[in-house]
Amino acid sequence: MEVREPHAWPSTPAEAEAIQDRLRPSLDLADTGPQRPATIAGLDVSYADGDGDRLAAAVVVLDAVTLETVEESVVTGTAAFPYVPGLFAFRELPALLEALRRLETTPDLLVCDGAGLAHPRRFGLACHLGVLTGLPAMGVAKTRLYGTHDAPGPRRGATAALTGDDGTVIGQVLRTRDDVKPVYVSVGHRIDLDTACRHTLALCPEFRLPETTRRADHLSRAALRAS
Rank of each mutant, 00 (worst) to 15 (best):
E2R: 06
E5F: 09
E5P: 00
H7F: 15
W9H: 09
W9Y: 14
P13N: 05
E15V: 09
A16S: 04
A18W: 03
Q20E: 02
D21K: 14
R24H: 09
P25H: 04
L27M: 01
L29T: 11
A30T: 14
T39A: 04
T39I: 09
D44C: 05
V45E: 11
Y47I: 04
Y47E: 15
A48K: 09
G52T: 13
D53P: 12
D53I: 06
L55Y: 06
A58N: 05
V60Q: 07
A64N: 03
V65R: 14
L67N: 05
E68V: 12
T69A: 14
T69N: 07
V70W: 02
V74D: 06
T76N: 06
T76F: 11
F81E: 12
P82E: 13
P82T: 00
L87W: 11
E92P: 08
P94F: 01
E98H: 05
T106M: 12
T106F: 02
T106K: 12
D113I: 02
H119T: 01
P120L: 00
A126Y: 07
L129A: 08
T133V: 08
G134Y: 07
M138T: 13
M138L: 13
V140A: 07
A141C: 07
K142N: 12
K142T: 11
L145S: 06
Y146P: 09
G147C: 02
H149R: 05
D150W: 00
A151K: 08
P154W: 05
L162T: 03
G164T: 09
G164S: 01
L174V: 03
D179H: 13
V183K: 04
G188M: 12
H189Y: 07
L193R: 10
A196G: 04
C197K: 04
H199Q: 12
L201N: 04
E206T: 15
H218V: 15
S220D: 03
A222P: 03
R225H: 14
R225Y: 12
S227Q: 07
